[in-house]
Amino acid sequence: MRTDIEIKQDVLDEFAWQPIVNETHFNIEVKYGIVRLSGIVSNLAEKLVAVNAAKKIIGVKAVVDDIEVKIKANVSDTDLAKKISFDLEWNTSVPQENINVKVEGGHVFLTGKVKWAYQKSEAEKSLEYIEGIKSITNTISIIEEVTPIDIEKNINKAFERSASIDANNITVTIQGNTAILQGKVNSIKEKDDALIAAYLAEGITNVKNELKVEYDAVYM
């Protein structure tokens, strides 16, 4: 049984635990298990780490991200595009030749086509720590054809291998190249882990995460 006050304290403690997060940069509000984060940070990485840290806390139903990224250094879009291209080139998980990069006012837009969903995800993740990026919009598409039955089996096996996912409480349905996840999980972290695992399946281009976080808590 947890209260909003306890959840807020846990979020603060988790922020203090993360080296990249300065807890003084954030305002934290918790109501009925929903955490709202606001404030100003100087890089995208700190924002993403803060949001993910809040999702780990037991009892959190959802996280509302109102954090603003304001870059201190004056980085031109041209220089930023060069840094991004260099980073993607050296990331062996990403087929750089299939990805297009556009930068406007520090906001990065990724387009193109890749074979695997994890390549789309990795392209975005590899850029999160580049100084000067305010946001990343990833519309890279995935091209692959796999039997839906095989996809469902592979996702279920991935859940069974995971120490953080209770496969018995999750149902996987495949519609075309979309995986639909339904059932109950104990935390947002478990819900996110299931989403990531499903995205790694060959042939999956989209995941509808309809998993419900069920946790007995008292909100004050």
Results as ranks from 00 to 15, higher is better:
147 T>I: 13
136 I>T: 09
174 I>H: 02
120 K>C: 02
87 D>Y: 01
10 D>L: 07
10 D>I: 02
110 L>W: 04
16 A>V: 01
203 G>A: 01
169 N>H: 10
63 V>H: 05
5 I>N: 02
56 K>M: 11
144 E>K: 14
69 V>R: 14
27 N>V: 10
52 N>S: 13
6 E>D: 07
191 K>D: 01
170 I>V: 15
155 I>R: 14
76 S>R: 11
16 A>G: 00
93 S>V: 00
208 K>E: 13
166 D>V: 14
101 V>L: 02
15 F>N: 05
80 L>N: 09
141 S>R: 12
72 K>N: 07
107 H>A: 08
183 G>H: 07
59 G>L: 09
71 I>P: 00
29 E>S: 12
125 K>W: 01
56 K>L: 13
76 S>E: 03
54 A>V: 13
204 I>E: 00
201 A>E: 10
77 D>E: 12
106 G>A: 01
79 D>C: 02
212 K>I: 12
161 R>F: 03
156 N>K: 15
83 K>V: 02
88 L>T: 09
56 K>S: 08
147 T>E: 15
43 N>S: 13
218 V>T: 14
146 V>S: 01
117 A>W: 14
98 N>D: 11
17 W>D: 06
118 Y>E: 04
173 T>R: 11
220 M>T: 11
106 G>K: 11
154 N>L: 08
172 V>Y: 05
68 E>I: 14
119 Q>S: 04
